[in-house]
C-alpha cells in the first residue's frame, strides 16, 4: 500500500515510519521548516494550494500525526492541527484517497480515574495545554470530514508511553496505558484495511460510518483503557481478554 506519512522527520514520525516501512511503500512529508536536509522527505506546508493536491495524488492511505509530532509554539501547533489537517483532508477527499488515519492520544481521556471503564464512547476531556488542545482539535476536524463522508477516517488514540518491543515491553514499562511498538504496528496495519462500519449503529445504512475512534494501547492485563474498538473494528487481541 502506498502511504503518505506527515510530520515524518519528528521523533514520533520516524518511529511510525519504522513500523510501517516493512509492509508498505512510504511517502514521507513534512513542513518546510522541518524537511530541510532530509532528501527523502517531500517538503509540503499543507496549504490550500495545488502542492497539497500533488502530495496526495496516487496515495492509498494517509497516516497523519495528530499528536506527538514536532514541538512548536501554541499558535503554530493550533495552525498545524486545524488548518493543515483541514487542507490535507480536503485534498485527500478530492483525490479519492480511501483511507486516513489520524494518530491521536489517549491522554485526551487521562483525567478520568483509572478505575473507570473508559471506552471510545466516553467524552474526551482536553486541557488548554497546547499540545493536548491541538490533538483534540485535530480530532474535531477529522470528525467533521467523517460526518460528511467521501473518505474513511480511523482516529487512533494511542496509549502512552510508546515503548520499543512487544507487549511484554509494555508490561515491563510499569505504565498501565503503555503501547508497545509491535502492537502499534499491528494496529496501524489493521486500521489501513479495516471495515470502519464494523459494529457501528449505521453499518447497514446507505451511508455507513466513515469516522471511527479506536483506542490503541497494548493488551496488558491491568490496562487502563478498554479496547472494545480494537476488537470489534480492527479484529485485534480478542484472545487476550479484549472484547
Amino acid at each position: 500500500m502506498r502511504l503518505l506519512l506527515t510530520s515524518a522527520t519528528s521523533d514520533f514520525g520516524r518511529s511510525v515510519a519504522g513500523l510501517l516501512a516493512p509492509d508498505n511503500d512510504l511517502v514521507l512529508t513534512d513542513l518546510s521548516e522541518h524537511a530541510k536536509g532530509h532528501e527523502h522527505v517531500i517538503t509540503c506546508d499543507l496549504g490550500d494550494d495545488d502542492s497539497t493536491d500533488r502530495l496526495v495524488d496516487g496515495i492509498d492511505g494517509i497516516v497523519h500525526i495528530g499528536y506527538g509530532g514536532h514541538f512548536a509554539s501554541a499558535s503554530d501547533l493550533l495552525d498545524q492541527h486545524t488548518r493543515c489537517t483541514y487542507n490535507l483532508l480536503t485534498a485527500a477527499r478530492s483525490a479519492g484517497v480511501p483511507r486516513f488515519i489520524n494518530l491521536s492520544t489517549l491522554k485526551l481521556l487521562s483525567d478520568y480515574p483509572e478505575n473507570l471503564t473508559v471506552t471510545e464512547n466516553w467524552r474526551s476531556t482536553p486541557s488548554v495545554e497546547p499540545v493536548i488542545l491541538s490533538a483534540h482539535l485535530s480530532e474535531y476536524v477529522c470528525r467533521e470530514f467523517g460526518r460528511e463522508g467521501g473518505i474513511k477516517i480511523a482516529n487512533l488514540r494511542l496509549g502512552f508511553p510508546l515503548v520499543d518491543g512487544d507487549t511484554a515491553a509494555a508490561v515491563a514499562s510499569g505504565s498501565t496505558a503503555a503501547l508497545a511498538g509491535d502492537d502499534l504496528r499491528t494496529a496501524l496495519n489493521a486500521a489501513l484495511i479495516a471495515d470502519l462500519a464494523a459494529g457501528a449503529q449505521s453499518a447497514g445504512s446507505p451511508h455507513p460510518a466513515s469516522f471511527r475512534t479506536i483506542h490503541v494501547q497494548s493488551p496488558i492485563p491491568n490496562r487502563r483503557f478498554l479496547l472494545k474498538g480494537a476488537a470489534s473494528i480492527l479484529g485485534l487481541w480478542k484472545g487476550q481478554g479484549v472484547a
Binding site: L78, T82, Y86, L89, T90, T125, P126, S127, V128, L133, H136, L137, Y140, V141, E144, F145, R147, E148
Partner: peptide, 25 residues
C-alpha cells in the same frame, strides 16, 4: 455539527477552544 464548510468549520473550532478554556478557568 458544523460540517466542513470553511466558515462554519473554522468558527466551530474557535467555539470549541473557548469551551475547553471554560473547563479549566
Amino acid at each position: 455539527q458544523p460540517g466542513t464548510r470553511l466558515y462554519a468549520h473554522t468558527k466551530a473550532l474557535g467555539q470549541e477552544i473557548d469551551r475547553v478554556f471554560t473547563t479549566t478557568h
